[in-house]
């Protein structure tokens, strides 16, 4: 079963920490949402967890293995990160892009195995891309390109899935579909962690929240316990009100109702 252990982690760029030392344990079956305003360090944190940035301090382990001592290919089998920089100057098809997710499972050269093909087919189906599979990526809309990036990481089949703003550019149908799929992935024994700007989506689909405050402080907890008007104002710098009724919460900026 997958696990992600963060121990006294300080992340930042140029050696300057953005946060107070962060410690948390994400276990198999959990969906984590990271909330914070622009510049709070959500992307920097996810990039640090994926060993793309050196931590300013502390340690990250995936399945008990320190990520800095793990060869890239081995790490890619354990941990994946959804990014969004397909190079549109080169005419790769959607299927070819998604098959890149199988790199860590393949020998250095040669074709795709049956297992690879199956993982690619499942990833295309999960992101509703089957009909677009042979289309060049530079012929797709922004939302479709986002789904290709997500499908690539799904084909990678890591135990820990990190997603940086996964619903960015997606319409409501595909946002809901992705969030449901994240829940299914967690239920199949994976750890899913994504950054979001939408408090309501985070509350609805995540079972743990990590709040990154502008001053570098942080908090973790269960959404309904953690989301209070005071904390959200501290988090985003604007007052938010709960417009929901009874157990149904719906957070909106004050004055917007």
């Amino acid at each position: 079963m997958a696990s992600l252990q963060i121990d006294q982690l300080c992340f930042g760029r140029g050696g300057k920490a953005l946060n107070q030392p962060l410690t948390l344990q994400a276990s198999a079956g959990q969906v984590w949402a990271v909330l914070g305003e622009n510049g709070a360090g959500k992307s920097t944190m996810l990039h640090t967890l994926a060993a793309l940035l050196k931590p300013v301090g502390g340690q990250v382990s995936v399945d008990g293995v320190d990520i800095r001592r793990c060869p890239r290919k081995l790490l890619a089998r354990r941990l994946g990160l959804v990014m969004q920089q397909a190079n549109l100057a080169f005419p790769y098809s959607v299927r070819e892009m998604v098959s890149a997710g199988r790199y860590a499972h393949r020998p250095p050269w040669g074709g795709l195995s049956e297992q690879d093909q199956q993982a690619i087919t499942e990833a295309l189906a999960a992101t509703a891309l089957e009909r677009l599979a042979e289309r060049p990526i530079n012929h797709l809309s922004g939302g479709e390109q986002r789904r290709v990036a997500i499908a690539t990481v799904l084909a990678q089949q890591p135990g820990v899935l990190l997603m940086d703003e996964p619903v960015h550019n997606l319409d409501v149908r595909h946002q809901v579909s992705l969030m449901r799929h994240c829940r299914q992935l967690a239920e199949s024994g994976r750890v899913v962690m994504f950054s979001l700007h939408d408090v309501n989506l985070a509350r609805q689909y995540a079972d743990r929240l990590l709040l990154l405050y502008p001053d570098g402080a942080w908090e973790t907890g269960i959404p309904d316990q953690l989301l209070t008007p005071q904390r959200l104002q501290h988090l985003f710098g604007v007052p938010l009100r709960d417009l929901g009724q009874g157990p149904h919460h719906f957070w909106a900026p004050e004055g917007g109702e």
Binding site: A51, N87, E96, P108
Partner: peptide, 25 residues
């Protein structure tokens, strides 16, 4: 070049993308 071919397909999309998919960039 042919031995590098599968890795080049990833590198063309950026160093970070390639690294996160398992390439020693």
């Amino acid at each position: 070049a042919w031995v590098m071919a599968n890795s080049l397909d990833l590198l063309v999309h950026g160093d970070e993308q390639a690294a996160v998919l398992g390439v020693e960039v």
